[in-house]
C-alpha cells in the first residue's frame, strides 16, 4: 500500500506527465481541415438545393414544405447508399465536420452500425445497434425541443 506522502507525489507525477503529453501531442492543422470541411459541406448543401429545385420544377403543384421533405429523403438515401458501397467514410475522412453536420452525416451514422452489426442477426444486431451512434443525437434533440417547448409555453 502507498503511504499518504507517496500518494501525493504520485498524483503530482501524474499531473506533470499529463501536462507533458498534452504539450507533445501533434495538433491537427486547423486551416486545411476547415477548408475541406466547408468545401464538402458546401457541396452537399448545393446538391440539396439542386434536388429541391428539380423537385419544384418537375412537380409545380407541390407545396414548398412537402418538397423540402422529399429533398431530405433523397439526401438521406444518397448518403445511405454511399455508406453501403463504402464511399462515405472516405469522404468523411477528408471532410471531417463538413460531412458529419449535414443530414447526410446523420444518415451515415445510422447506416454504418446497421451494416457493422448485421452478423449478430436482424433483431439483436441491426435493430439493437442501429442507433448506437445516432441515439445520443436523437435524445438530445428531443430533450432540447421539450425544453424549448416549455419555455415557449410561458412567454
Amino acid at each position: 500500500m502507498l503511504r499518504e506522502v507517496e500518494k501525493v507525489e504520485e498524483k503530482k507525477l501524474r499531473e506533470a506527465y499529463n501536462r507533458y503529453v498534452k504539450a507533445k501531442i501533434p495538433k491537427t492543422k486547423a486551416w486545411p481541415s476547415l477548408f475541406n470541411s466547408f468545401l464538402v459541406g458546401g457541396i452537399i448543401c448545393c446538391i440539396g438545393q439542386g434536388v429541391n429545385d428539380l423537385i419544384m420544377l418537375w412537380f409545380p403543384s407541390m407545396a414548398e414544405q412537402t418538397a423540402w421533405a422529399y429533398t431530405l429523403i433523397v439526401l438521406i438515401f444518397i448518403a445511405s447508399f454511399l455508406t453501403g458501397i463504402g464511399v462515405y467514410d472516405k469522404i468523411g475522412k477528408f471532410a471531417g465536420g463538413g460531412s458529419i453536420v449535414p443530414i447526410t452525416g446523420f444518415s451515415n451514422s445510422i447506416t454504418s452500425p446497421a451494416l457493422e452489426f448485421k452478423h449478430e442477426g436482424v433483431v439483436y444486431g441491426i435493430f439493437v445497434k442501429m442507433f448506437t451512434v445516432a441515439g445520443p443525437v436523437i435524445v438530445t434533440g428531443v430533450v432540447a425541443s421539450f425544453v424549448v417547448g416549455v419555455i415557449y409555453l410561458f412567454i
Binding site: I25, P26, K27, T28, S33, T83, G84, G86, Y88, D89, K90, I91, G92, K93, A95, G96, S99, I100, G105, N108, S109, T111, S112, P113, L115, E116, F117, T132, V133
Partner: peptide, 17 residues
C-alpha cells in the same frame, strides 16, 4: 475497431495520435 471504437463505415476523422 468494432469493439473499441466506431463502425467501419462511419465517416469520422482520426486524430493524429
Amino acid at each position: 475497431e468494432r469493439q473499441f471504437r466506431f463502425p467501419l463505415e462511419l465517416g469520422n476523422q482520426r486524430p493524429p495520435t
